[in-house]
Design a protein around this nucleic acid. Sequence first.
DNA 1: ATTGACCCTGTAGTGGCTACAGGGTCTAGG
DNA 2: CCTAGACCCTGTAGCCACTACAGGGTCAAT
Lengths: 137, 137
Amino acid sequence: MASSRTIGALSREAGVGIETIRYYERIGLLPPPRRAESGYRHYNDDDIGRLRFVKRGRELGFSIDEIRTLLQLAAQPEQPCAEADRLVREHLAEVEQRIADLSRLHAELAGLACCSERRASDCRIIEALAGAPLPHA
Amino acid sequence: MASSRTIGALSREAGVGIETIRYYERIGLLPPPRRAESGYRHYNDDDIGRLRFVKRGRELGFSIDEIRTLLQLAAQPEQPCAEADRLVREHLAEVEQRIADLSRLHAELAGLACCSERRASDCRIIEALAGAPLPHA
DNA sequence: ATTGACCCTGTAGTGGCTACAGGGTCTAGG
DNA sequence: CCTAGACCCTGTAGCCACTACAGGGTCAAT
Ligand SMILES: [Zn+2]
Ligand SMILES: [Zn+2]
Ligand SMILES: [Zn+2]
Ligand SMILES: [Zn+2]
C-alpha cells in the first residue's frame, strides 16, 4: 500500500515548509507530484525521500545547484562516486574559507571592544571605522 | 581648496564600486551630493570619509542597518559611546555564532570525505544524504 | 449548511549588491 | 569643428534561497 499525503503532511513529515516545497518544485529540484481532481498535490514515499535528501544537503550547507548534482549522482547507482567526493571536498574548502574569513573578522572586532566610558569623539570603535590609525599594540 | 570629484574618482579613491555608491545613496546611507548642471554628482572630502567609514563597517561584517546606527553615533561626538560598544559586542556574538555553526558543518563534512573508489549506490556521501544510518564510529 | 483547516496560483519582498539598456556629457586628438 | 571614446545619468531587473501575503477554491466534521 503506497501511502499518499498532501503537501501539509509532507511538510510535517520532512520538516520542510510548505512554501519551500512548492519553491523546490518550481525550480525543478522536486518533480511535479500527482494531482487530485481538486488540484491538490499528492506525494508518495519516494517524494519524502527526495525531499529529505534535499533538506540534509541544505543543512550541510550545499547550494541548490550542488544538491541538484548530488541528486543526479544518486540516481545513477552504477557510476563511480568520484564526482560526489570532489563536490564534498570543494564544499569543505568553501566552508574552511568562510571560517577563516570570520575568524579574521572576529579578531578584528574583539580588538575594538570595551570603550563604553568614553565620548563618541574618542571612541575606539568610531575611530577605527573613521580610519584613524590605531596604536599598533 | 575643497577638492571635488565625480563618482568615478570617488569610486577609485574609496575602493567602492560606482553602482554600490549610487545604491548607498538610494537607500539613504550616503547623502545626495552636489550636482553639476549636467546632472553629474560631485563629492567633497567629507563624502570620501563617510564612504570609507561604510566600507570598513562592511568589511567588519556589519549590516547596513548597523552601519546606519554607527554613523549616527559618530555624528554625535559628545554622547557617550556605550551604544557603539553594545553594537560591537552584539555583532561579535553573531560572528561567534556563525563560526560555531560552520565548525559543526565542517566536522560533519569532514566525516564524509574519501570514498571515490565506490559506486554511487555504496557511496557514503549519498548514503548520508539519503538518510542511511552511518556506523557511529 | 456552515465553519475552519487546508490547499491553489501568482506576485512581491528580503539583503546587498550587480548588471544591464538606453540615453546624455565631456574631453582630447585630428 | 568634429568625432571617438570615456564617463555619467535614470530606471529596471537579476542574483540566492526562501518567505509572506492576497484572493481565491476544497474538504471534513458538526
Ligand atoms: Zn558549496
Ligand atoms: Zn567607545
Ligand atoms: Zn551584526
Ligand atoms: Zn563515494
